[in-house]
């Protein structure tokens, strides 16, 4: 069969198609190049000592154990606070709130929060938690700042997964004489657990990658903190990202910076696959 598409149209189509392919290939190659570059420069510097010691000016050695621990502390502290708040908020919006205007307003507020840049969070966190609440530059101030920042993420994913719980579950539980909260706790929440887990993973991803919001709230120190110091006011410390920034920008120590960047990249990969896995579970839940 002979088509009657003019040559010009064919050329135009081919050019556009080529551009589309080119842009996709370009983005993938750029990402691959970036990953390869970071791993190539960073991995050789990651040794056991590097991971398990703190930096020492005396011995002129660099170690990132304090920063690893600080990252972990901040993740735990933030999650402990933000998960109940975010999940509770989503439950309220989905199961309790009757006033649609209020729901819309809360959702608008959450959208606003997710649009605010992290440097503003850093500044406001400094004003509110470091100065006003006089927690000092500390991990706990950083964690509280990140609570505000990650709240919309947790809220949204929980809301999405609550939507996938069929109303018949709720009706069944209520019909059997369960109280409302009992119904939510024993029927709704377990069915929505995969979505809540997804929110948790996304929040961890944001916390690991965050730097601007922590610079002025959690500080730049590289000291080792034990658990008690970490949760008390004044326990300052830098997470991996902040310390990477300090090594690269302030000290010009690019070997260490690349080593930390490689670790961050690997963490990002892990978190990403975990999030995809959770999303897949969530989709399965919606399908049934």
């Amino acid at each position: 069969m002979k088509d009657n598409i003019s040559l010009l149209r064919k050329i135009k189509g081919a050019v556009l198609r080529g551009l589309v392919w080119l842009s996709a290939v370009f983005i993938c190659l750029m990402l691959a190049g970036m990953i390869f570059f970071i791993l190539k420069r960073g991995l050789p510097h990651i040794t056991l000592d590097f991971l398990t010691q703190k930096p020492s000016l005396l011995n002129d050695t660099v170690g990132i154990l304090p920063n690893l621990l600080n990252t972990l502390y901040i993740i735990l502290m933030t999650l402990v606070i933000v998960m109940p708040l975010g999940v509770g908020s989503a439950i309220y919006l989905r199961e309790y709130a009757k006033n649609q205007k209020a729901v819309r307003l809360i959702e608008l507020a959450a959208e606003t929060l997710s649009g605010i840049p992290s440097i503003i969070y850093g500044l406001v966190g400094m004003l509110i938690f470091v100065q006003f609440c006089s927690l000092g530059t500390s991990l706990i101030a950083g964690a509280l700042t990140l609570v505000i920042m990650t709240l919309p993420t947790v809220m949204r994913t929980t809301q999405e997964s609550l939507k996938t719980v069929p109303d018949s579950y709720r009706e069944g539980a209520l019909g059997l004489g369960s109280g409302k909260w009992h119904m939510i706790r024993t029927v709704v929440l377990p069915s929505a657990s995969d979505g809540i887990a997804a929110g948790c993973i996304l929040a961890i991803g944001r916390i690991v990658g965050e730097s601007a919001a922590l610079l002025f709230t959690a500080g730049m120190a590289n000291e080792m903190l034990n658990l008690k110091e970490a949760v008390s006011p004044g326990g300052a410390g830098s997470t991996l990202t902040v310390s990477m920034y300090m090594y690269a920008k302030e000290r010009g120590d690019f070997e260490t910076a690349f080593a930390i960047a490689a670790i961050l990249l690997i963490l990002t990969l892990l978190i990403n696959s975990a999030a995809r896995f959770a999303a897949k579970l969530l989709q399965k839940g919606t399908g049934k």
């Binding site: 983005i27 691959a32 970071i38 920034y245 961050l264 990002t268 990969l269 990403n272 995809r276």
Partner: peptide, 25 residues
Amino acid sequence: AIVSGAVSLMAGIPSVVYGLVGMIV
């Protein structure tokens, strides 16, 4: 799927890592 994986990975990479690569490359 490959491209969408790449994009979601890009979204997760911390901004300081982009800064570092920008600085060096």
